[in-house]
Amino acid sequence: MSTPQDRIAVECPSCSPAESTVHEVLKAGSGRHTVRCTECGHVHKIKTESETEVERKVVISQDGESFSTTVGAPPAETIAVGEEFIVDSEEAIMLVRITGLEVGPEQRVDETAVEDVETIWTRAVDNVTVKVTVNPKEGTGDRESTRSFDLQIPGDHEFVVGDEVEFGDEEFRIKAIQVREDAPEYRHGKFDHDGDMVYAKDVKRLYGTDLSTSAWSAW
């Protein structure tokens, strides 16, 4: 026989989806309970208070533009700058990296609990724009002939110093990689030794040497 502590008031998806009815707790679990509606006998599972989430504003920056949405997370969960998570918004489902945690007016921290955050500032990292600066091959142009362009590429693409790469009409040898400030896992801000690897989502700018002659034929 159920005691008062074994009964709770929750919505029943069968007979009362909009209003709470009395339910018997059949099985108490960590995070979820199995309950039975006393009105219609329907058995279902419910989330317990330990899984309660709070909504927090998230600002997502991508290619110079930004938009805001909200995410839910346990209030006691600790989050930090540099961490990545999935955002499921009306605009798209995307992977983002935390770039700032606003806990008050003009007050930001590197790490805090979700319940203390007002706004989570992020950058989309599943698909990114990588800026590239390419110098002409020796003997085919001067330093004033250096040109720059952007690459649209998946964030997990690997760029390796010393590799010869081709993207459409662009063909060049990577000679250096400048790393973004929000990529703390790297020991240096710039890599220029053959074999050094940086993911596209962490690249601030690529530096390369042109491998084609046609690109500089106009000079």
Results as ranks from 00 to 15, higher is better:
D192N: 14
F159D: 00
G141M: 09
K175T: 15
K204S: 12
Q178E: 14
H188K: 11
T146S: 15
K204R: 14
G208S: 12
F167C: 12
Q152I: 06
D150R: 03
T209L: 08
F149G: 08
D163G: 00
K190L: 13
G168C: 12
S148F: 11
E158R: 05
E170T: 08
L206A: 13
F172T: 04
D194H: 06
I153Q: 10
D150E: 11
Q178G: 11
E171R: 10
P184I: 14
G139K: 00
E170P: 01
R187P: 02
A176I: 07
A176Y: 03
G155M: 02
K175E: 12
I177H: 02
R173E: 14
P184Y: 09
S148P: 11
D169A: 12
V203A: 09
D163F: 01
D163K: 03
A200E: 04
L151S: 11
G195Q: 08
D192F: 13
A200G: 13
L151D: 07
G139R: 00
A183K: 13
D142C: 11
V203S: 06
E181M: 10
Y186V: 03
P184R: 07
A200N: 09
R147E: 15
Y186K: 02
A176N: 04
G208T: 10
Y199G: 01
L211I: 10
K201I: 03
R180P: 03
V165T: 04
A176W: 01
D163Q: 03
R173K: 11
E181T: 12
E171W: 04
K204E: 11
A176F: 05
D192M: 13
F172K: 02
E164A: 05
K204V: 03
K175V: 15
E166T: 09
E158S: 05
I177C: 11
R205C: 12
E164M: 03
F172A: 04
G189L: 15
Q152E: 11
E164V: 04
F191A: 06
A183T: 14
S145D: 15
V165I: 09
M197S: 08
H157S: 13
P154Y: 05
D163R: 01
R143P: 04
K175P: 02
I153R: 07
P154S: 09
I153L: 13
D156I: 04
G195I: 08
E170I: 04
D202V: 01
G155T: 09
R180M: 13
G139H: 00
